[in-house]
Structures are given as structure tokens and as C-alpha cells.
């Protein structure tokens, strides 16, 4: 069952380890705090990649629900870093225009924009820009909480730029 779609997936250590070492025990799936929102369990995603269903794996909701908390990684009996595996899948999906979650890629994009421009981020600005791109109405919902933060003095919109932005470019 060798897939035609192998080019869609990057050849990284985390992916290779998952393909070669997974014993399909399901520890990762049952450890995941977000498992009941996933369309496929993490173990099934590993299996999809192993058996060549790359297209299908990149289309799952699962990969975008991974918050990289690494509970699976420290429990996996095959010592597979499934958090990094999921990150690699996200990367492959993004690169090849797969996405079944509209929000997450937008968040990444916005985050990267800030870094590429300033070398740093500002969470409040990130949230606002991200919301403007996706669902501006959400901003309204955030007002009461933002007021609280403002009162407590934790809200600031200033963002300092690093001196030479070229230093973080390859």
C-alpha cells in the first residue's frame, strides 16, 4: 500500500520514528486531553501515514487539535515524540494547502508576520489582528475580559522591534 502521495509529507525524524517504531498501542490517543474532539485518534493518524494515506492524514481535524502538550510523547512506549509528529504534519499540510481548520493556519500566519517584521510578538495585537482576519465579531466578546486586564495593568499594545531583523533570517 505504498502511497503516491509521499511527497506531500516531509522526511523528518519525528515522522520517520512514528512510521518505523509505533506499536499501535493507543497510549497517545487515550492520553490526549482533546481526543474526544478529534475525527481520528492520534494512533490512527500515525497508522494513516504509515500505510500511505497521506492525503487523508493531512485532512484530519486531529492534527490541528494537537496543542503540543507532549503528554503522549512522555508516555509513548516507543518513545515517539508525537507532539513533534503532529507539528510536522501541520507543516506539511500548510505547505501543500491542506486545511480543514481555517483558523489555525491563519493564526500561524499572523504569528509569523509579527516575528518576521519585529522579531517579537505582542499577544494582544496578535489576537486583534487574528480576529480581524477571521471573525471580527469575536472582538466584541473579548471587550469585557480586556477591560479586566486593562484594570489589572496587564494589557499593553506596545511592541519593541529587535535591532537587526536580518539576524533571524536564514
Amino acid at each position: 500500500m505504498v502511497s503516491q502521495n509521499n511527497h506531500l509529507i516531509e522526511d523528518s525524524y519525528a515522522i520517520r520514528a512514528a512510521i518505523e517504531k509505533c506499536i499501535q498501542c493507543g497510549t497517545c490517543s487515550a492520553s490526549c486531553p482533546l481526543n474526544n474532539y478529534m475525527d481520528y485518534t492520534p494512533r490512527q493518524v500515525v497508522l494513516m501515514v504509515r500505510e500511505g494515506f497521506i492525503h487523508e492524514a493531512l485532512k484530519t481535524k486531529t492534527i490541528w487539535l494537537c496543542s503540543t502538550c507532549y503528554l503522549c510523547a512522555v508516555r509513548c512506549p516507543a518513545k515517539i515524540n508525537i507532539g513533534e509528529f503532529m507539528t510536522a504534519l501541520k507543516r506539511s499540510a500548510l505547505k501543500n494547502g491542506y486545511s480543514n481548520n481555517q483558523l489555525y493556519p491563519k493564526l500561524m500566519e499572523t504569528y509569523a508576520e509579527y516575528i518576521n517584521k519585529y522579531g517579537r510578538i505582542s499577544e494582544p495585537r496578535l489576537m486583534i489582528k487574528f480576529s480581524l482576519k477571521t471573525s471580527p465579531f469575536k472582538l466584541l466578546k473579548m471587550i469585557p475580559f480586556s477591560m479586566k486586564l486593562l484594570r489589572e495593568g496587564t494589557l499593553s499594545f506596545s511592541l519593541e522591534k529587535i535591532q537587526n531583523i536580518e539576524e533571524i533570517k536564514i
Binding site: 499501535q24 493507543g26 497510549t27 497517545c28 487515550a30 481520528y40 508516555r75
Partner: peptide, 24 residues
Amino acid sequence: GKAAEITESDNGKLIVTFEDTLLG
């Protein structure tokens, strides 16, 4: 499926969490 963890409920029962890998 391999048990991922065991927790204890309020009534002293043991909750075993696992993936039934054949059902997914």
C-alpha cells in the same frame, strides 16, 4: 489497547482510560 492512565473517582472506583484500538 494499552491503558494510558488510572484515576480514582469520588466513590473510590478506579477509572481506566485507554483506546480500544480496534474500534478507534
